[in-house]
Amino acid sequence: MTLRFVLLGALLVLAVMPALNRLPADSALHVSDFLISITGKWITYAILALAIDLAWGYAGILSLGHGAFFTLGGYAIGMHLMRLIGTRGVYGHPTLPDFMVFLGYKELPWYWLGFDSFPYALFMAMAVPGLLALVVGYLAFRSRITGVYLSIITQAMTYALMLAFFRNDMGFGGNNGFTDFKELLGMSLNTANARAVLFYASLVLLVVAFFLCTRVAQSKLGRVLVAIRDAESRVRFLGYDVTQHKLFVFVLSAVLAGLAGALYVPQVGIINPGEFSPGNSIEAVIWVAVGGRGTLVGAVLGAFSVNALKTWLTTVAPDLWLFALGGLFVAVTLFLPRGLIGLFSKAKS
């Protein structure tokens, strides 16, 4: 009961933040632009954490490749943003983004067609990660690759994608990626207005995703998933199609991650292949572990608290952050297997 109140309170605080941003700068309740943009970023991280928790916490699929789904979604929306720059680029080419002019492209590659339309880009931000998850998941679950093997495979997947996207001739801007975005849906990105819109969009998606995930977790499907997590073979012998169940949750989770990435990129204003790095994916997993896996609330809590810690520590003592993050990995797995939520419920009982 108390937890629900805390959550509602937190949500309310988040909801009024952009409004408080409009207050005059000398007001005691004023929220800075920096705080708005960084909180907006954390909200997208929280959606990513939800997606990971759904797959890992319920179905036992520890994917170390969710950063790849997130980044692919980001790239899809990044392509749209690049197309919208139009003649405002350095080279002023009407259709080709700057890096393509620079690399000597004569026309848009076929896979760039259609990205001038926002609905198409948004669709691709979900479809590409979803399709990748479908293919990888199908291949992996069908051959009953589970546990750490699946983790390694998904890590190899994001690693391969990182290597591929670093190449200039992939047509995705090489190691510079995309940046210097101008506008989205007619609003100039560098305004308080755009920040507020993106902030609310992220918040709405977080709430929707949370309820969607809760629905899935509490449904019969969710119970089968938990059963698969705890005794996969037994569920298979009982006649359930384990592959299909796992595939469903894996693809759903990838689509969510892709959407989170699509909201992340316009807020941070840059996307590059470094986001594919395996370290990012595993860092996202630790948010879930810190918050408490298999609880959904924990995932959101973990994403916010770990990233808050990161922001604070990297400004106060940059050298210490990696020690702290590493220590977090060790401490959580050894001493807090149920995460912060576990502490909470222990205190209650």
């Binding site: 890992w56 546990g147 020690f323 590493g326 220590g327 797995t333 050894l334």
Partner: peptide, 14 residues
Amino acid sequence: PLETLLMTFGVGMI
């Protein structure tokens, strides 16, 4: 094994 994976990753980071 999954916890071991995460824990050792943290050790590697440190």
